[in-house]
Amino acid sequence: MKPLADPILSHLLRVTAEPDLSSTPYRLAGHIGQGGMGSIWEVEDSRLDRRVALKVLHNGTAIREEAKTAATLEHPGIAPVYETGLLEDGRSYYTMRLIRGKTLAEAITPELPLRERLRLWLSVAETLDFAHSRGVHHRDLKPDNILVGDYGEVVVLDWGIAERNSTNHGDDLAALARLLSYCLPPKAAKPLRAIAEANYDSVRQAIKDVHRFQDGAPVSTYRESILEKLWRWSQNNQALLLLLFAYAAAKLFLVFLRWT
């Protein structure tokens, strides 16, 4: 038999990878991408006339576990699962909310302000903190698994290798620290760098430190010098400094008048 020509091989691989939706109320609308544990497709739900995301994998057990994990986590930072099912070709699937946007890797551009960078990271951290409080450990946190929606919503995807009933969140904490380094601009303030390099016991502690930084308070993992303390104090008390400066200037002016 003659070897299959490249265009035919590509076509065959594509059509056999496409989910066979003939027994479902869904119609294929396009390919979204590859998850850690399967492929994700955009489909049209004919019952409600809406587009949803459909994730499919030939390993049925794995995908049912993933759907179950995501379904137990009701949070704005996690795409809600609508339903699970079995395709005609034997593969299992689940559908979830379709979020249009870009990955965090695409969203972090050089001109993105620090405030927005920290907002994105804090959204991810809040989601992870919630998952940990429910005993779920994501284990595959990376910029490509985080979606920033067109309306600014931040969604953590790909719970395919997540672990349930887990109390060891070490991997997630390390990944979250790497993610903060990734989000920070090259010349980020030292306290923020210290937060990204610190070993926290929980996500909540890291979140608190970032909030402290945003509020102009000292962070727990960075020891400031006297000059840095003065600088931070001056940044937090600009109005008072301005008044003192105005008072000193007025005093000097009066002294000058008296002298002349």
């Binding site: 990878a17 590859q34 492929s39």
Partner: peptide, 11 residues
């Protein structure tokens, strides 16, 4: 087998 299946169909 599962890993190779994913590689075969690029899933």
């Amino acid at each position: 087998y599962h890993r190779e299946a994913r590689r075969l169909f690029a899933e």
